Computed example of a mutant assay.
Amino acid sequence: MVIFWGWLASLIGLLLAHPTQWSAPVVLLAVAGRTFLQTGLFIMGHDAMHRTLVPGRPALNDGLGRLALLLYAGLSFGRCRRQHLRHHRSPGSLRDPDFRLASGDGALRWYVRFMGNYLSFKQLALLLITWISAAALLIGLEPQRGLNVIAFWVLPLVLSSFQLFLFGTYLPHRSQGPAAADSHAVRSLEYSHLVSLLACYHFGYHWEHHAYPAVPWFRLPELRRRVSLDHG
């Protein structure tokens, strides 16, 4: 709920702000904060896909997941859940919607395919209509405020999509040779607790997530320590 209300309050506050009067570092900090909260919305939806957002209450869990993904990018909870569970069932295979299609695919082609499996033209149209409508309302109040939609709504979503792909898919699943391919190229990133949180809400601890998908994001560091002790 902190993520949800933080996202909503920061969006409203920054859309009504006057960033042209701010210094560049303040604007960049605001964009970075919005990006982090934007990614948090997807993480809420992701945990809802695994029924760990509100354990034991599937209707509330799925309802909050739908809301989180709708606000994130107009995404369909049902479609995202089906695709994501396919990813967990067949990581690294041709049936995996999150994996690269061929070994020669670079990061950019992989990213485009990754996004295409979750974002449809209908959802893109919904986003554009929402952004244009918001910008029109703000321009009616003051012309310069129309730029706030781009700076604090559109840009954070684009940056968030790169963040989720880079730290939640590309780096953990990137093949490093036969050994990685044999294990479906699932591995964890060796980040400290704070860096892991800032990078992508601990989803760089990706082996742990695949091995224990019912563990919510905020318990992945604890799980990682426990697993390391068990294998130490």
Results as ranks from 00 to 15, higher is better:
Gly63Gln: 04
Ser133Asp: 03
Leu64Tyr: 06
Leu60Phe: 02
Val227Thr: 15
Phe121Pro: 07
Arg226Trp: 13
Leu53Phe: 05
Leu108Asp: 06
Trp5Pro: 05
Tyr205Arg: 15
Phe77His: 06
Gly74Trp: 06
Glu222Trp: 13
Arg51Glu: 08
Asp105Leu: 09
Ser103Asp: 15
Arg82Gly: 02
His173Lys: 05
Ser160Ile: 01
His193Lys: 14
Arg219Gln: 14
Arg82Cys: 02
Cys200Ala: 08
Leu94Trp: 14
Gln21Arg: 11
Val26Arg: 11
Arg86Pro: 05
Arg86Leu: 15
Arg219Thr: 08
His231Gln: 13
Ser10Leu: 10
Glu208Tyr: 08
Gly65Trp: 03
Arg34Ser: 07
Leu94Asp: 15
Leu189Ile: 14
Thr52Leu: 04
Ser196Val: 12
Gly78Phe: 00
Leu147Asp: 09
Tyr111His: 13
Ser10Ile: 06
Gly45His: 00
Ala199Leu: 05
Gly65Pro: 05
Trp110Phe: 10
Ile12Thr: 13
Leu71Val: 04
Ala151Leu: 14
Arg145Trp: 08
His18Thr: 08
Tyr191Cys: 15
Trp5Ser: 14
Trp7Val: 00
Ile43His: 06
Ser90Lys: 14
Thr52Glu: 06
Met44Pro: 02
Val26Phe: 05
Ser188Val: 05
Ile12Val: 12
Ile12Ser: 10
Gly168Ala: 06
Gln176Gly: 08
Gln83Trp: 01
His84Leu: 07
Trp5Ile: 03
Trp153Tyr: 13
Phe121Asn: 12
Leu101Ser: 12
Ala68Cys: 00
Arg81Met: 02
Arg79Val: 04
Ile150Asp: 02
Phe4Arg: 08
Trp110Asn: 12
Tyr212Leu: 13
Tyr72Thr: 06
Ile12Asp: 01
Ala17Asp: 07
Asp98Tyr: 12
Leu157Arg: 11
Arg66Val: 00
Thr35His: 06
Asp230Lys: 14
Arg226Phe: 13
Trp153Pro: 10
Ala9Ile: 09
Asp182Cys: 13
Leu15Val: 04
Gln21Gly: 00
Gly63Tyr: 06
Ser228Pro: 07
Leu119Gln: 06
Gly177Met: 10
Ile132His: 14
Tyr170Asn: 07
Leu53Ile: 00
Ser196Phe: 03
Ala214Val: 13
Ala59Leu: 12
Ser133Cys: 14
Arg95Trp: 10
Phe152Arg: 03
Pro156Arg: 03
Leu37Glu: 00
Gly63Thr: 03
Leu197Asn: 07
Gly33Gln: 04
Gly146Cys: 01
Leu197Ala: 12
Phe203Ala: 08
Leu124Arg: 10
Arg113Met: 03
Gly104Gln: 10
Glu208Trp: 00
Gly140Arg: 05
Ser120Asp: 08
Leu41Ser: 00
Ile132Pro: 03
Ala17Val: 02
Leu108Arg: 10
Trp217Lys: 06
Leu141Ala: 05
Leu147Gln: 14
Asp96Glu: 09
Leu37Gln: 05
Glu142Ile: 01
Pro213Phe: 04
Trp7Lys: 02
Pro25Gly: 03
Arg82Gln: 09
Gln38Asn: 11
His88Phe: 04
Val27Tyr: 04
Phe165Arg: 10
His46Asp: 01
Arg81Asp: 03
His173Arg: 08
Ala211Glu: 11
